[in-house]
Design a protein around this nucleic acid. Structure first.
Lengths: 294, 294
DNA sequence: TTAAATCTATCTGTTTTTAAGATAGATTCT
DNA sequence: AGAATCTATCTTAAAAACAGATAGATTTAA
C-alpha cells in the first residue's frame, strides 16, 4: 500500500521535473525523495520515471499513475477538510424536519446557500406529516424543525415564529359545495371532511378542526389534495399545499359565511436545548429568523 | 496526513465493532490497533469511537469520516489495480486512429466491450481525414489504425484487411447531374468535383481520383457531404459517410455508364512493428480481424 | 453475587522504517 | 575542460511501529 509521503514525493518530482527540486519544495533531503520514488516504483512494479537523461521524465505509465496519485491525495485532503470542519464546530450531520404544510421553496433556496458554505456537512431532510416534527425533535432524530405553531411545546423545546400560512377550506370544482357561492357551517357538516392526522396516536390536535361527522383521515395533506381532486369530500388545507391546484382550477377555495375565509396559522422554527446545534445548524437557524414565510 | 495503516485499522475496528477483533482480522497485536486509532483521532482532532461501553461504538463524526476513509482506501485500490494491470502487460494508454470514411458503428461496439475488459487503460480516439492515419502511426501518435487500404505502407508497418467499403459518386438531388439517368465521364468532367485531401502535402493519393478540371479540396468527407447537400458539385464518397443523406434523399448516388457504379475499396487495420502493442492493443487487433466491415 | 472471559489503554523493549549527510558518477551548460 | 547540477547509494542517527505484558473495566455465565 503506497504511503502518502511516497505519493507526495512522486507528485512533487513529477511537477518540478527534478528530485532535487522536489526535495527543496518538500523541505526534505534529496535522498529522501529518491528513496521514496524508488520504493514506490518497486512496490508498484512500475517504472514511473525515465532516468536516461539528467532529469527524470515521466514515463507513460507514470503519467497515468500520477492521475491516480492525485486522486489519492485529494481524498486525503477531503478527509482532513472534514475533520477540520468538525474541529471548527461544524456538526457532521444535520437533520432538518420540515412539515409538509410548510412552503418548501424559500427553504430550498436557503439550503442551496448552505451547501456552498458547509460543503462537508451531511444534510438530511425529512418531511413528516402534521405535527410529527415535534416527535422527531424530541427523540433526537432531527436537529431542527419547521412546523405549524403549537399551543405548547414539550419541555426543553425552543421555537420562534418565522411566518404565516393560510388555511383554506377547499374541494373539487365538481363537488356539490363548489356550486354554492358561500358555504355555512351546516353545509360543511353535510359532506365528508378529510382531515390530516399525525402518525402519533397520542396527538389529538386534529380534533379541534373536525366539523363534519363524516370524517376520513390521511397522514399527508398531499394525499388529501389528491382525494379532493377526485371529487371526494372537502378539507381545510394550507395554501402552499394546494397552490397549484387552485391556480389551475382543479380545486376551489370555499367562501364561508360569518367567518373569515382563511385562518392564519403561524410557522415556527423549532429546536431543542437538549442537543445543542453546531455551526451549520446555528447558521441555518439565524437565516430562518430572517425568513418571512407566508 | 493519515497513514493507510491507521485507516485500515479504523475501518476494521468500525466493521467488527472491536479493536481486538480488528487486530485478529489484520493479524496484528491489539495494541497496534488501539494505537493506530488513537493516533488517527489525535491527528484528526476528532473522537471516532465512543468508549463508554466495553466495545467501542462509532460516534457521528466517526460515521462520517469512515465514509471518507473508505474513499481513500478505494483510491489506493485503484492505484494498485492500475499498477497491477501494467505489470500484467497492459498499456496505460492506447490511441486508435480511425479514418473518417470507416463506418464507426462496429468499432464502437468493440470499444464498449473493451471498456469492460480493460477498465484501467486510457483510450484515445482520433478520427483523421483521408490517409492521415498512416502519419499518426508513423510518428507514434497512434498505436492502432483503421484506414482505407494503401498500395504500399511505410517500412515497419503491419496491416490486414478487415472488410470493404463502397465508394459512390454522389451529388445533391437538386444538382443537374441528378436529372440524368446515367452519367458519363464527360458529364462528370463538366461539373465541379469535390475531393478529400489529406493534411499532408506529401500525400498525392488523391490525384488519381480527379476527373474534373474544376476541383475543390476538403480534408473531411463530412464537410464535402455538407457542400454537396447545398448543391455544390459532385464527389466520390464512401457509403458510410453519406449513408443517412442517401436514405433521406438529400443526396443521390449517380449511375455511371461503362463502369461499375461503386468501386469497392478495402479497409485495413494497421499497426507498426516499431512499438509493440500491449495486451489491450493485441485484444483489439484480434477482434478487428474477426470484424467484417462492409 | 461471584468468577471467568473479554475488552481497552498503556508501558516497555525490540525491530523496522525513515530520513539526513556525505559521496561518487553522470549529465548539462558555458 | 571545468563548474554546476543532477541521481543513486552507503552509512548512521532518529523516529515510528509493533508485539508482549499488564492493569483496570465491562460483560456474561454460573
Amino acid at each position: 500500500m503506497p504511503q502518502p509521503d511516497q505519493l507526495n514525493a512522486f507528485i512533487a518530482a513529477a511537477e518540478t521535473g527534478s528530485f532535487s527540486a522536489a526535495a527543496r519544495r518538500l523541505k526534505k533531503a534529496q535522498s529522501a525523495i529518491s528513496n521514496a520514488v524508488i520504493n514506490l516504483e518497486i512496490e508498484a512494479g512500475v517504472e514511473l520515471f525515465d532516468r536516461s537523461k539528467r532529469s527524470p521524465v515521466l514515463t507513460e505509465e507514470g503519467h497515468t499513475l500520477l492521475k491516480s496519485a492525485y486522486a489519492i491525495i485529494e481524498s486525503h485532503a477531503d478527509f482532513i477538510a472534514k475533520a477540520m470542519a468538525m474541529n471548527a464546530g461544524e456538526e457532521s450531520h444535520l437533520c432538518i424536519a420540515i412539515e409538509q404544510n410548510v412552503s418548501a421553496l424559500p427553504v430550498v433556496e436557503l439550503l442551496v446557500e448552505f451547501e456552498q458554505i458547509f460543503p462537508y456537512i451531511e444534510l438530511e431532510l425529512l418531511d413528516p406529516g402534521t405535527s410529527d416534527v415535534a416527535t422527531l425533535l424530541r427523540n433526537g432524530r432531527a436537529d431542527l424543525g419547521l412546523m405549524m405553531e403549537q399551543e405548547h411545546y414539550p419541555k426543553g423545546f425552543m421555537f420562534r415564529g418565522i411566518g404565516h400560512s393560510r388555511k383554506l377550506p377547499v374541494c373539487s370544482k365538481n363537488h356539490p359545495l363548489a356550486k354554492l357561492k358561500q358555504v355555512s357551517h351546516s353545509d360543511l357538516r353535510s359532506y365528508r371532511q378529510l382531515v390530516p392526522r399525525s402518525l402519533d396516536l397520542e396527538d389529538t390536535s386534529h380534533e379541534e378542526q373536525i366539523l363534519s361527522p363524516k370524517v376520513w383521515y390521511a397522514e399527508s395533506p398531499f394525499v388529501i389534495a389528491e382525494l379532493l381532486s377526485a371529487g371526494l369530500g372537502w378539507a381545510s388545507l394550507h395554501e402552499s399545499v394546494v397552490k397549484e391546484q387552485l391556480a389551475q382550477g382543479s380545486l376551489i377555495a370555499l367562501k364561508r359565511i360569518y367567518q373569515q375565509n382563511a385562518s392564519l396559522q403561524g410557522i415556527d422554527v423549532v429546536w431543542t436545548k437538549h442537543k445543542p446545534l453546531g455551526k451549520g445548524g446555528q447558521w441555518l437557524l439565524e437565516r430562518c429568523f430572517k425568513l418571512n414565510l407566508r
